[in-house]
Design a binder for these strands. Structure first.
Lengths: 343, 343
DNA sequence: TTCTCTACTGTGAACGCTCACAGAAGCATG
DNA sequence: CATGCTTCTGTGAGCGTTCACAGTAGAGAA
């Protein structure tokens, strides 16, 4: 649009050009750029017109150099596996965060720290002040990166309650336990009495909480806890399949399964199908997440919807507050039972 | 806000601190940082030691301010839909690019430009020089953002051959046409003669090329082209399902389907199952992509593997070359037939 | 009048780095 | 001895911005 007719590549306009154009000083332009306090309406208007005319865009590098802020946020994934990329929830979360930040005109830097080596480099990068804060997605406990960032005083918001960390780290999570309770109550309401579960990894908050909810409801229904009905998975499809086989072998009379993720539930469906069990007639299956995988499955999964859109927007809100100097906060968001064909 | 354990607020070390520590000047430190030309071995070593000792990390903002480079790359998604996030290929691509860039210590900025409004803001952001180059993922033709960036002279590499654009834009793509040929030949080799296809969107290069490959092989096999065997989809699961129903209605004798994406193929399987057709006995189904969806499907899909890892690393390589002043390049990578249960 | 207060504006000095340039040292050549 | 060349090193300037501070003008109070 602003190509010079002369053909030369034109140097982008600076605050100086705008000042000259508006007939004011650099300082006044800067004040307009940063909220417009102590600026007369006339100057305000002149500067805005000059900005439009010159096509001026602030040079973030120059600004960052002096403010010490970088005006960007890191999205950090410290999973050793690529599981998160396989996980549809991850997409939704990433997209939600990007959009929430875009509303503040803040770019998001995607950082993958799978290996030990990468983790070191990225920690170094972050602590050097190249991002103002970090959105952390790391399900496992005892994450060294998280601990290091916390110690370095980098504003940090985790997705899901971090287990291993000392207190005072902000996080946003769905109410896993309550979601699990809802699902198991739902299964019991269908008349099922031999309700098994395939848990998530038990070094993750989600895994622990969902199992806790399961146990609570069985107890409140007066059903005896039967450890043969509990097998553990790692949120992957394959582990769901293996888990269901295990379950069928140990408790053939199982008539319902609460699976701690939709992806695992897909695996469970496969295994049940192979074993000749009909879903939901013989065995009702409930998932967790309401990810695209839930609808992709056949039959479509009854599941617990996690409010990913709200989780991501809350993560961004809390992080920006933290950067603004507010105290750490924990946000727990409600889940919702979504009934489909599998129960 | 990095608080020191000692209690003092420590300013991060600058190039000046390193210079003092090493007993040399700023200039020498800078030269070491930028390749070490014209630096004596003794100075080189002293500077490296000082860097290690002080924990110095270069301030990219200061560097960018003077060099005009930003040392970061944008990953731009201009899809209006969230389809890409649903698409497992996207994950692999994003991860691959992030990692390839990480090897060069270049952070990746994720940019989503779904709406018209966002597109304007992001174009502005990019053309203001906040990234050195852009990896563009936009399947549709006539993308205004791409055209604007091209005109503004921003180094740009597209994923897949852009249709609408004027020439001279770099891209990396799998050999869609050849992949389609392989799959259709495979279906014919199984003795199938009524081979249908569910195409991708025909305003995308993938959609067009895969259909072209299909037609070519039918022609070379001496089979007459039957337009009842061709229905179009949009790469979504739902469109695959609808497409298969359409196909069954128009050509009930269909004995094989080449589906232009795995996700659509999942939908095709669902529709075939509902219609009581066995796969692969009654109808063989071939997908495209070899995405996780291919293995998630039941039966597991025979498909065409796209070399996503190489696509992403090539995109990064070409973009860095472009930034380095080299000429635009097009890279076409070979595909591979992966046989599974559905054929 | 004179003083104070408020609202606004301009100016130099940073921020941490790279770049151009000047110079020094070492060595060979005229 | 001067001269040139190469390799290395230090210095000043400046990138585009914000920030602190010093003003200025105008209004109201003493």
């Amino acid at each position: 649009m602003t190509m010079n007719a002369a053909g030369g590549r034109r140097r982008p306009p600076t605050i100086h050009d705008v000042a000259r154009e508006a007939g004011v000083s650099r300082g006044t332009v800067s004040r307009v750029l940063n909220g417009g306090h102590y600026v007369s309406p006339a100057a305000q208007e002149a500067v805005n017109a000059a900005i439009r005319k010159t096509g001026y865009v602030v040079n973030r590098h120059a600004r960052s150099l002096i403010t010490g802020r970088s005006d960007s946020i890191g999205f950090l994934l410290t999973e050793p596996q690529e599981r998160f990329f396989e996980d549809p929830n991850f997409n939704v979360l990433l997209r939600g965060c990007t959009q929430a930040l875009a509303a503040h005109d803040i770019p998001l830097l995607l950082m993958l720290a799978g290996t030990e080596d990468e983790r070191r480099r990225i920690t170094r990068y972050i602590t050097a002040g190249h991002v103002d804060g970090v959105l952390l997605v790391s399900s496992h406990s005892g994450d060294p990166v998280a601990e290091q960032l916390r110690e370095a005083g980098v504003p940090l918001v985790a997705c899901g309650k971090p287990i291993g960390l000392a207190s005072k780290v902000s996080y946003v999570a769905a109410d896993d336990r309550d979601g699990a309770r809802d699902m198991v109550r739902h299964l019991l309401s269908l008349g099922r009495r031999r309700v098994g579960t395939v848990t998530g990894p038990l070094d993750t908050p989600g895994g622990v909480e969902r199992l806790a909810g399961y146990k609570e409801v069985l107890a409140e229904a007066g059903l005896e806890f039967d450890e043969r009905l509990v097998v553990s998975g790692d949120y992957s499809r394959a582990s769901g399949e293996a888990g269901a086989e295990h379950l069928l072998a140990r408790a053939p009379d199982v008539d319902a399964v609460f699976v701690a993720s939709d992806l695992m539930a897909q695996g469970v469906l496969t295994a049940l199908h192979r074993a000749g069990r009909r879903v939901p007639e013989d065995v009702a299956v409930g998932g967790f997440d309401d990810s695209p995988a839930a609808v992709a499955a056949g039959p479509e999964l009854t599941t617990i919807r996690q409010p990913w859109d709200r989780i991501s927007s809350e993560m961004v809100r809390v992080l920006l507050a933290l950067i603004g100097g507010e105290d750490p906060a924990a946000v727990i968001l409600p889940t919702e039972l979504v009934k489909r064909e599998s129960t």
